[in-house]
Design a binder for these strands. Sequence first.
DNA 1: TTGAAAGCGCTAACAT
DNA 2: ATGTTAGCGCTTTCAA
Lengths: 331, 331
Amino acid sequence: MATIDDVARSAGVSVSTVSYVLSGKRPISEPTRERVRKAVAELGYRPHAGARALASSRTQVIGLVAPLRAGVDVNVIMQFVAGVVTRARSFEHDVLLLTQDDVAGIERVSSGSMVDALVVMDVEAQDPRITTLLAVKQPVVLIGLPARPHGLSCVDLDFEAVGRLAVTHLVELGHRTIGLVGPPPSVLARHTSYAERLIRGLQSQAEEDGVHAVVEPAEPGHRGGQAATEVLLAVDGLTGIVVHNEAALPAVLDTIRQAGRRVPEDVAVLTVGPPEVALSQTPPVTSIDIPAQEIGGAAVDMVIERLASAGSPQTRLFSPRVTLGETTARH
Amino acid sequence: MATIDDVARSAGVSVSTVSYVLSGKRPISEPTRERVRKAVAELGYRPHAGARALASSRTQVIGLVAPLRAGVDVNVIMQFVAGVVTRARSFEHDVLLLTQDDVAGIERVSSGSMVDALVVMDVEAQDPRITTLLAVKQPVVLIGLPARPHGLSCVDLDFEAVGRLAVTHLVELGHRTIGLVGPPPSVLARHTSYAERLIRGLQSQAEEDGVHAVVEPAEPGHRGGQAATEVLLAVDGLTGIVVHNEAALPAVLDTIRQAGRRVPEDVAVLTVGPPEVALSQTPPVTSIDIPAQEIGGAAVDMVIERLASAGSPQTRLFSPRVTLGETTARH
DNA sequence: TTGAAAGCGCTAACAT
DNA sequence: ATGTTAGCGCTTTCAA
């Protein structure tokens, strides 16, 4: 591989000139710049990432902590990841992926200076990683909202507002008893941030509106969705179901039909998740979208910003909106 | 951050001794080793990844090329990724994730010496990345099987055998006309390796067995699966359906029922995909598993092996097996 | 506008 | 069994 010395020699300039042409950190005369560019192209030169990291203390790599836990909506995860990677690239950064659910990986890449910043997914209300993250020298952004952020930056969909919005939407349509097919028990058991926030919003809005809300977690897969839906359908006077569990959605629709109830005439269905999933059902399901890609991108924005200016941490919550399908109607 | 010099000073030894204690590349007396370890622990020392990469030409990072394309089974992708990351960690490697579908990322991380090796996913029959990969200095393993591997190492489930096995299983049960709900048209259009191989195996086995096979791609989502299934159900004498499209599976089962046909009495269903998805349906679907996690791990094994010994490239194909559910029966 | 040179923090050959 | 030291390939200060 060609080194910066080779380029300098070939262009008849010093290495620092080559470096400055590449970084643009000081003005270089047009002719020189052109000669350097030519030499770079001819030799197929690429700076050695390690050498650059050593000299500049910048790796151009963002660490993405994405534990692959049971019960998560894999489509949503992928969208987050895609958003992070894409936005990172737009800032000339690559992404190092950590999927192990421990604090060791965070410590390793952080104190080993493998990354410039960290984006952390699947945050829990009392996340055990927070202590470690607070001690990290790189900027950190959480995707999610712990009970106590301790001054860490956070970004997420406002899931509490999602819960409220779901209730409001259904109540406005005349529904008075509403069920939630929630995330799997395992997700709730570890107090996953988004799950608890949605339920909290749903319940408090229901209370404010004086309507009845029933929460029923669903195990992954068809049977989980089926079981939860059957429980809800047995609830007296229930006419609306909110689904916060991508894997259960087909089963929910299926089970309602099997029970001889019509959607939306007898039971309205509203799902929380990626638009594609909701809209590709039969019929298209009214949904509150999770703009996962956008949130992932925003996480990178925040982390890059703090890399540049060391500004103070902030929390950014995206407001939910309803995308109408054909599964909610006036009761 | 503490450097190796700090550790050496604190332990009263030279830097090389510290380095050798850490790498184990030369014998160190027990007392010295202990003093070094203690100093490392006290200072919380971690070698600087960039410095190490510069000096040793090893990054301890594997590049994972995983383009997030339309129509792929996201569960399967995730399993591959999980397999790669987990196995990589067991060899003290981390994973840099490239999701962009171009050759630029490969060139960047390869010639920038950001990775020690590359694992490439979602391989097409005539994959445009192959030329680039052949020029790369790091070891490469493809997950998938291009028409001409050109001497690159490959690992995958033997999808041709999957197609054959699916037919054999159904034919043995007495089925004579078989349908395939295939991957989305977009996946077929780009000649995705696994999709074409499965169809090839399915068709040639059908021919050999003198049975009729109909292939119908399915767009993602419920409606795609529904449409494809309706087409197949209209085929005269069709009694068996193979589903190679995770997102369509619930819709396929649903549509068969809606059409008033029973599973498996009237129509047998066999799916190709992760076991969890198949088994969590109602009823549990007979499946040919894609051991994605295992394959991802094997890819890492192969790449690590070549890093150690520069052995010659090889192709490893996993043999498919049927996991019985309740959706296939004698006709 | 450009160049020289001192590091950055390691590894590993070469000494002892 | 341990130490000394020359790089690894960059960035960036200091000079000119």
